[in-house]
Design a protein around this nucleic acid. Structure first.
Lengths: 197, 197
DNA sequence: CTCCTTTTTTATCGATCACTAAAGAAAAAG
DNA sequence: CTTTTTCTTTAGTGATCGATAAAAAAGGAG
């Protein structure tokens, strides 16, 4: 019962996500969000709490809707080398894409926040670390299955992959071309030495 | 003639630089700068213009005082492979250092600014691109001098190195250890295939 | 000393920040 | 219909943003 919402929650959330993605947490004001969401402040606060909880909701949405390729790449390929190659390749396509803001919300969305130990920055940091951990797990699996040499340090190889992904976000925002970054991704994987022989 | 300044310009500039380095351009307020510089607003504005020009002055200072290792690494080593190895190694030491803020001001100091086409963000972007260009130049030189295979794409190899450096800034801010990043740097260089045979 | 220049201090400025109280409007329930 | 519930609109809150006007203070020049 009661008066029904005049807007579609999913729709306005997508618009907020796009703005946070483009401008980052701190540089996006409630006033900016009002404009793109087409809502007055009380509607925003009633529906999403406050700016920080709205951002967290958007971050979760980003991971669900725009980062699916990470798990996809790490689970759908037969070898760790192929998984990592696909991961980096799909990352490039996600970061340099005509219909999306450049770069990654998780990497570049909240670098500097007043409090390092809580808030948006920490949420994204946890997502970054979860990604790196997932890569480590995939490489370890490769070693168990025999497609990755045992002398490779899975955590360090994974950290290099994560580092390259994070660097790609800056590169994408600086205007790097899709094709160039694909070549860089290929170079990076070759240097990893993940394939046996 | 006239009343002499009550503060040392170099000294307060260093303090402003450290704060921008730690918190980034947008998250650092004039009020914060007042506190660490020990100055009242009119003194800051009279000496440094406004917040944006103060940041640019700090960015220039950062490059001069804390990024000297880049040119050093690219000019003082006999081969491109050694130059790149030293560059990444010194980058790790610069980004994870007990007496300095973690990460890089040029990479992480101004990700999101209202105007993409001017202001702090653009200044840092230009520094990032200058670094990548310098790496390219060094690798090309290696090819001319015969220590880098001719079939390597210098621009792409340089972009990978720049990407890893940029990723290191995020890694450093996320708490990665100095030793771990050194291992990652070594991995990255090995994968580059810059050495002939 | 007095004058002149520059810097300091004090006290703000208007704009914008994130956020909200209160009243009006739109639906379902009775 | 009236009542109840929920949402939207209007209009603002105090706090902080970057930046400044005006006056007091500290030096050198004469």
């Amino acid at each position: 019962m009661g008066r029904p919402k005049s807007f579609d929650v999913d729709d306005v959330l997508e618009k907020a996500l796009r703005l946070f993605w483009e401008r980052g947490y701190e540089a996006t004001s409630i006033s900016d969000l009002e404009r793109v969401m087409g809502l007055r402040p009380p509607s925003i606060y009633a529906a999403f709490g406050n700016k920080e909880t709205l951002f967290k909701t958007c971050a979760d949405r980003y991971v669900e809707r725009y980062s699916g390729y990470v798990v996809e790449a790490l689970t759908k390929e037969p070898t760790a080398a192929e998984a990592v190659m696909r991961l980096l390749s799909d990352t490039v396509d996600a970061y340099v894409h005509d219909t999306q803001p450049r770069g990654c919300l998780v990497v570049s969305g909240a670098i500097h926040c007043p409090d390092m130990d809580e808030g948006p920055r920490l949420v994204l940091e946890q997502y970054r670390k979860a990604t790196e951990a997932a890569i480590t797990t995939r490489i370890v699996r490769g070693q168990e299955e025999g497609d990755v040499p045992k002398d490779v340090s899975a955590p360090m190889a994974a950290k290099l992959v994560a580092t390259v992904m994070q660097g790609f976000s800056t590169q994408a925002r600086d205007g790097a071309g899709n094709e160039d970054l694909h070549r860089v991704a290929k170079l990076a994987v070759e240097a990893l030495g993940l394939s046996v022989a």
